[in-house]
């Protein structure tokens, strides 16, 4: 048995433009419930606090808040506020939007990062973005601190932290 010739040849961009096609633009809109645990997490953010869940069995302090410990598979035992500082575990400097379109030269680059939060168990990171920093100077292990929106502008969203900046 040999596989030397395979079917299908694909369309060039031109052929694709000309090909008969049917278009559909669905309206896929959702309202996702926060649920109880994340609801508390968001309420904490509104109050300028980063909340973490505790599990008394494994002793972990976990972010974000969750109803159950996924390792012990039992309900968590309450929340505590951890620091709004942390350490950059990893980061990227992104030059493209999700649709593969490119950011314009003068647009600020997105700098997503995984930040291990101080006061939570080791390795408990959250994804956020870095700001107020020269992208070329970002380093793994850098200490960063949350920059909060003014109280009046907070709505109970992860965006209530505008970004993390070095301190």
């Amino acid at each position: 048995m040999k596989i030397e010739k395979v079917p299908m040849k694909g369309l060039t961009s031109e052929e694709y433009e000309k090909a008969l096609k049917i278009s559909w633009k669905p309206k896929l809109q959702y309202a996702w419930d926060n649920g109880i645990a994340i609801g508390k997490y968001l309420q904490g953010l509104k109050e300028g606090k980063l909340l973490a869940s505790c599990c008394n069995r494994c002793g972990r302090i976990m972010l974000p808040v969750r109803s159950f410990c996924e390792l012990c598979w039992r309900p968590t035992d309450g929340e505590i506020a951890v620091n709004d500082t942390g350490v950059v575990n990893t980061f990227a400097i992104c030059h493209v939007n999700w649709d593969a379109s490119r950011l314009k030269p003068d647009e600020p680059r997105h700098i997503p990062a995984v930040i291990e939060i101080d006061g939570a168990s080791k390795g408990q990171g959250i994804m956020h973005v870095l700001g107020n920093v020269d992208p070329a100077k970002v380093k793994i292990g850098m200490k960063v601190k949350a920059v909060w929106k003014p109280v009046a502008e907070r709505v109970g969203s992860i965006d209530d932290i505008r970004f993390f900046e070095p301190y």
């Binding site: 959702y30 996702w32 926060n34 994340i38 997490y41 968001l42 974000p64 990893t90 980061f91 990227a92 400097i93 992104c94 493209v96 939007n97 999700w98 997105h110 997503p112 990062a113 995984v114 959250i126 994804m127 956020h128 973005v129 969203s157 992860i158 965006d159």
Partner: peptide, 17 residues
């Protein structure tokens, strides 16, 4: 949807990270 999407992440972020 609640703790990550408001940051407007794209798929490539996590691979770069």
């Amino acid at each position: 949807h609640t703790t990550e999407q408001p940051l407007k992440p794209t798929l490539i972020w996590i691979f770069a990270l």
